[in-house]
Write a protein that binds this DNA or RNA. Sequence first.
DNA 1: GCGACAG
DNA 2: ATCTTGTCGC
Length: 223
Amino acid sequence: MKHAWDLSEQEAITLQQEWAGKVSLETPERFAVRRVAGVDVAYDKNDDRLIAAVVVLDADTLEVTETASASGKPSFPYIPGLFSFRELPPVLEAFERLEAMPDLIVCDGQGVAHPRRFGLASHLGLLLDTPTIGCGKTRLIGEYEEPGDERGSTSLLLDRGETIGYCLRTQNGVKPVYVSAGHRISQEDACHWILKLAPRYRLPETTRQADQWVKRASAQWTS
DNA sequence: GCGACAG
DNA sequence: ATCTTGTCGC
């Protein structure tokens, strides 16, 4: 039988075009965030496995309150623009192992700053029906001006006349990050949240903690 | 055809 | 993503 994630490249693209229309760029009314999650995926080339880790932080203290992980064989190759079809299966499994769902999720990669406006963060947000933000270390698409040198400086990420996200400097003098709304959040709120989540380093604490935990998890899933 | 190209 | 040493700067 045909598995939900067993798609051809063309079918994946068609699904993105279809689902992009379901994405919401509006922050919910009475948006109260207590738990913020960070997601990261590692690849073990030795046995061709993906390891996903989800960490949940207290939105006020930024302390880790829960973690979960999952592992599986990649069911899709890495193709720029079709990233989510490779990474999401183990990520979703990790989320299922969480005791409490977070109020906001920060992903490594893009949200709507994507050729079809449906990056990893948008895909995950739609599947979990939860607000998501995409925060990438590098750009996938879009043009922008270099933001100012100070923390908090931003510039628009533009594509075909549309604002698809922001280029954000999270610390004085560091390389900027690329922020875009994933689902159920506005571009502006997405940017504000990333800045708030990155009080000390270039990357938000959600990403840093997820990165740290995915490495511990890989050791476990290997041995 | 050529260059770009999240992790 | 991952493979990898030293090096510059605070």
